[in-house]
């Protein structure tokens, strides 16, 4: 469905993409996961024919993104990072406009966008600028879907959107996937990785890993402990002094402490308590995608 081979792209002396190669299958929900500045937007712009790569090639729906861009543009749906809507047009006017430029009508593909659109339909006379973040996101998705594209590119659709809207948005993507649309999505939120069929972790223009989320997590090779106590900041600094410490980071309620070898939990607890930190609790942990990302990131730095 999508085949990316040895893609390079730079702006001046900033290398935005370095040797990116990915195969994405038909009907897949594929996620590019990485922080701002990782090169996600550049990659999406190349895949949607908006940018030309310095070298390497990319084919989408078996069409070359450089040479066959005209044909490709009729078949892909794209939702850029900032919800690209006309703020001064109403919900309905936005939809009709985008339907028009794709030479279709709202009625023609109503079935496809209905599950999303019906949530904002009560507000169809409202201007897009007056919608909440979550509703804007739904409208932008409806607009990107209006011509029934074979593949949908969503560049950071959940950035700056609250947890509830994010959850709803992913539910919508799952249902679109069931209709056979290939979906490529990018996000800086690591926790969204689990919702994709396969993911590529990307950092500073390079791919760290590509696989099913679970496989990436399973490859995590260190011993991981969750530790909490009353003085977290002092604790994290203290843990970094530990001879076995690979990394120690705040992780929500717990500090994730990665060690080179297995550690005697009771001994560690005693050491911490002896240093005057109280209410210490230590558990053994399984890594999550963020642990893996941070580990891969640290390895890549070296």
């Amino acid at each position: 469905m999508i085949s990316i081979k040895n893609l390079y792209k730079s702006y001046g002396n900033i290398q935005a993409l370095k040797d990116i190669s990915v195969e994405i299958h038909e009907g897949e929900l594929f996620g590019f996961i990485g922080p701002d500045g990782a090169g996600k937007t550049t990659l999406f712009r190349i895949l949607t024919s908006l940018l030309i790569p310095d070298s390497g090639s990319a084919r989408v729906i078996d069409l070359d993104v450089v040479n066959d861009y005209k044909k490709l543009r009729t078949q892909l749906g794209y939702m850029p990072g900032r919800f690209s809507l006309y703020q001064d047009l109403t919900v309905e006017e936005n939809l009709n406009f985008f339907a028009g430029i794709f030479k279709t009508t709202l009625q023609e593909n109503y079935e496809l966008i209905k599950p999303i659109y019906h949530q904002i339909e009560p507000f169809k006379k409202r201007r897009a600028g007056d919608l909440s973040g979550g509703m804007k996101q739904k409208l932008a998705l409806s607009c990107a879907l209006i011509h029934k594209p074979k593949v949908l590119f969503l560049d950071e659709p959940t950035t700056g959107v609250d947890a509830v809207s994010r959850k709803e948005f992913w539910e919508m993507l799952q249902s679109l996937k069931k209709q056979g649309i290939t979906i490529v999505v990018s996000t800086p939120y690591m926790d969204e990785a689990a919702l994709c069929d396969r993911i590529a972790l990307i950092q500073k223009g390079e791919l760290l890993d590509i696989d099913k989320p679970q496989n990436i997590i399973d490859r995590y090779s260190h011993f991981l402990y969750g530790i909490k106590a009353d003085r977290m900041y002092d604790l994290v600094n203290q843990l970094r002094e530990h001879p076995q410490c690979l990394s120690a980071y705040l992780f929500g309620e717990y500090i994730h402490f990665a060690s080179i070898s297995e550690i005697d939990i009771n001994q560690l607890k005693e050491d911490i308590v002896n240093s005057g930190i109280e209410q210490v609790e230590i558990i053994q942990l399984k890594a999550n995608i963020e642990d893996s990302f941070m580990d891969l990131m640290a390895k890549a730095e070296k």
Binding site: P188, Y233, Y249, E290, M294
Partner: peptide
């Protein structure tokens, strides 16, 4: 106001340590 949006996970944590330090 949303100081850590879009930042990589390691930097995000380093940032929070900075916050802890000031709070301390």
């Amino acid at each position: 106001d949303e100081p850590t949006g879009g930042v990589d996970p390691i930097t995000r944590r380093q940032f929070w340590e900075l916050i802890y330090k000031e709070a301390a």
